[in-house]
């Protein structure tokens, strides 16, 4: 194990400690903002698993975010499920959705894959948006629902309590991060990387490339669904815009800004955009223009993302993948 890899747990423990202590020093509103950054960062991480590690640029991840959000809401609203039941339903629905879409999508690659994922996204959004699906979607304006409590044995905490909700999100995202890290650190991660680097060679080596791509797509759908469920449960509502392909573009932008091919990058990107937008919107009229300028600056001068920029500023060479 390299010295840097040995330091990784230290960095993660320090980050977790900072997240653990944050509620003691930040205003209650920022607990919500931090939790939201983590949830959207998880969504970005799900996308980066597909793009940064397996080389598939998907604009369809919102489908699985939306499936997770609506799966959780439906489980609570219609089935009377508790928190754990809602999470289970959400990730199952999102993963099944991902398997179904991925079955077709992974048969093509490059631009065709991108176009196919956008097409799926637009078609499914339009179908759901039509009034015929109101029984699931709750109508054009979405559906509020009561957040179930966090139950741990005899302990029951309200998810709407900003402190309990915050720690729940930190724990869930940390768990997902660790799971994703372990997956990528295993042989499976190396297969994904080999497909990203040289798909024909991976095929020549005997790997079932389509099978592994479908697996990556499904795992990504699982994590995107988890992020959707966490968002819906903590914010207590669903909206059809969760399925919209523009939600997918958020993941793309945050990941590119934070640093592709990394697990931490999407969290930094979502943090920069959400906290930055939150601050700028109160200072600058038509602040999305300022965000757009920032994006251009990053693409032109820091194409390796925020993590890469920080490393460059620290005059450290980028480590080989």
């Amino acid at each position: 194990m390299s010295p840097r890899l040995r330091q990784a747990p230290l960095v993660l423990v320090a980050t977790l400690a900072a997240l653990f202590l944050a509620p003691a020093v930040v205003l209650p509103y920022y607990r919500i903002v931090l939790a939201e950054i983590l949830v959207w960062g998880l969504f970005g991480m799900a996308f980066d698993l597909l793009f940064g590690y397996t080389g598939m640029l998907s604009f369809g991840q919102a489908l699985f975010f939306g499936a997770g959000a609506y799966g959780a809401a439906y489980a609570v609203f219609k089935l009377g499920a508790g928190l754990w039941g809602a999470l289970a339903v959400a990730v199952v629905v999102a993963t099944v959705f991902a398997v179904a879409v991925g079955f077709f999508a992974v048969r093509v690659s490059g631009h065709y894959f991108l176009v196919l994922t956008i097409t799926f996204s637009v078609v499914i959004f339009l179908v759901l948006e039509s009034g015929h699906w109101r029984w699931i979607t709750g109508g054009y304006s979405g559906r509020p629902f009561p957040a179930p409590p966090i139950t741990l044995g005899p302990l029951s905490l309200p998810l709407t309590n900003s402190l309990a909700g915050y720690y729940f999100v930190v724990a869930a995202v940390a768990g997902a991060y660790a799971l994703c890290y372990l997956l990528l650190a295993s042989g499976l991660g190396w297969v994904f990387l080999s497909i990203r680097e040289n798909e024909p060679r991976a095929r020549l080596l005997g790997y079932n490339v389509e099978g592994y791509k479908l697996l990556a797509f499904s795992i990504s759908g699982f994590f995107a669904g988890l992020s959707g469920a966490l968002y819906a449960l903590t914010s207590q509502y669903t909206n059809l815009s969760f399925f919209h392909w523009t939600i997918s573009t958020n993941a793309v932008v945050w990941t590119v800004i934070g640093g592709t091919g990394t697990l931490l990058g999407p969290f930094l990107g979502s943090g920069l955009f959400i906290a930055g937008g939150d601050f700028l919107s109160a200072q600058v009229p038509n602040f999305p223009i300022a965000i757009g300028v920032l994006l251009l600056v990053f693409v032109l001068f820091a194409p390796e993302g925020l993590l890469g920029l920080l490393r460059r500023l620290a005059r450290r060479p980028t480590a080989p993948v």
């Binding site: 890899l5 990784a8 993660l12 890290y181 990528l184 650190a185 990058g265 993590l307 993948v321």
Partner: peptide, 8 residues
Amino acid sequence: MDKDLEST
């Protein structure tokens, strides 16, 4: 492996 963890 994971660029951020390996090199941070």
